[in-house]
């Protein structure tokens, strides 16, 4: 019972995170007896070399991108320079320039930063809304569940891309925050459904019933008792969602409904490839952006898959 039991139940993300550092030395022995969820996640990650490599790569890219973009001047990069149009990679421009004479490397870094920021923000916001919504629906059940799920159904049948494009074109001040909020409004439903199904299971367990008889409020039971017990599911879902959310902004920018050209974006760089000339002769404009998107999404996905496996004892490698 220890291992199977431990994985779905025993996951206290933040508490263990704190402990992990402290108990590093004795962790080897501890994992044998009663592995807590986070330790299982970590050991699974360590055993899956691809996932471990992905995680390290991801951390390096994130630190690098946020670090460099800190010292970069976005206005400078977005400035059109007619004397340096379509320059191939050189000492001055590491990755050359685009049709406006703008530095592609700078655009790549800022674009990656924007994509990552939007990915993190959308994942976090939709996670918070989805988890709260799903927990409430699943925990109370009955009529409340019915009403909430119909609301969710309504959101799910809306033509997502079309509405986003409409919103994007009517929002006057188009920033990362605005973009994330619009996306969040249409991407919390999957999380909510998943969490609801788990909460439906969880609320039948005796410890929830016990808390009710002990006079604990519903709010406390939902967020202090039930939520910590499904935290492994939350982490895994959020990680896998992150992989798809990173590509969100690029996809829309590629279609021309994302950020304006004054805001560098991976999608804008990619869309230059629709010009056959650029596609064939100026690889430095679109190729790095394509690789960046691919690497980011694959890396996050690898990590997410390893975490997902860790929550299922039968699929674990360790």
């Amino acid at each position: 019972m220890t291992r199977v039991y431990g994985l779905s139940r025993d996951l206290d993300l933040w508490g263990d995170l704190m402990e992990l550092g402290k108990k590093e030395t004795q962790s080897q022995q501890n994992t044998e007896n009663n592995p807590t969820g986070l330790k299982i996640l970590w050991s699974e990650l360590r055993r899956d070399k691809l996932a471990l490599f992905s995680l390290i790569l991801l951390i390096v890219i994130v630190v690098f991108v946020y670090g460099i973009s800190f010292v970069m001047n976005q206005d400078e990069i977005a400035k059109v320079d007619l004397f340096s149009i379509h320059k191939p990679p050189s000492k001055e421009f590491i990755l050359g320039t685009d049709y406006g004479g703008r530095d592609v490397f700078g655009q790549l870094i800022i674009g990656t930063r924007n994509s990552l920021s939007i990915g993190f923000l959308v994942t976090f916001l939709s996670g918070v809304i989805g988890v709260a919504f799903g927990l409430v629906a699943g925990y109370f059940g009955g009529h409340i569940d019915n009403i909430l799920m119909r609301v969710l159904d309504f959101f799910q049948v809306l033509p997502f891309i079309m509405l986003v494009i409409v919103f994007v074109s009517i929002v006057p001040n188009y920033t990362i925050i605005a973009f994330s909020l619009i996306f969040t409004a249409f991407s919390w439903m999957g999380v909510a459904r998943l969490i609801r199904s788990k909460a439906l299971q969880e609320k039948e367990l005796d410890y929830v019933q016990a808390s009710k008889t002990l006079g604990t409020s519903h709010f406390k039971i939902i967020f202090r008792e039930v939520m910590p017990n499904i935290s492994s599911l939350i982490i895994v879902t959020m990680t896998l969602n992150l992989a798809s959310n990173i590509g969100l902004e690029s996809g829309l920018s590629f279609l021309g409904f994302g950020f304006p050209e004054s805001t560098p974006s991976l999608g804008t760089l990619l869309s230059y490839a629709t010009n056959p000339q650029t596609l064939e002769h100026r690889w430095w404009i679109w190729f790095p952006a394509a690789v960046m998107i691919l690497v980011l999404m694959l890396a996050v996905r690898n990590v997410g898959e390893a975490l997902r496996r860790a929550t299922d004892a039968r699929q674990r490698r360790g």
Partner: peptide, 29 residues
């Protein structure tokens, strides 16, 4: 009434929240 009426559950494995310390479990009421 809640205070004066309590329950002992059948399954000692599922009736204690595995995420909480004994301190927090007994302190809940």
């Amino acid at each position: 009434i809640r205070k004066n009426l309590q329950m002992i559950f059948q399954d000692p494995y599922s009736s204690l929240n595995p995420r909480k310390r004994i301190l927090d479990i007994i302190a809940e009421p």
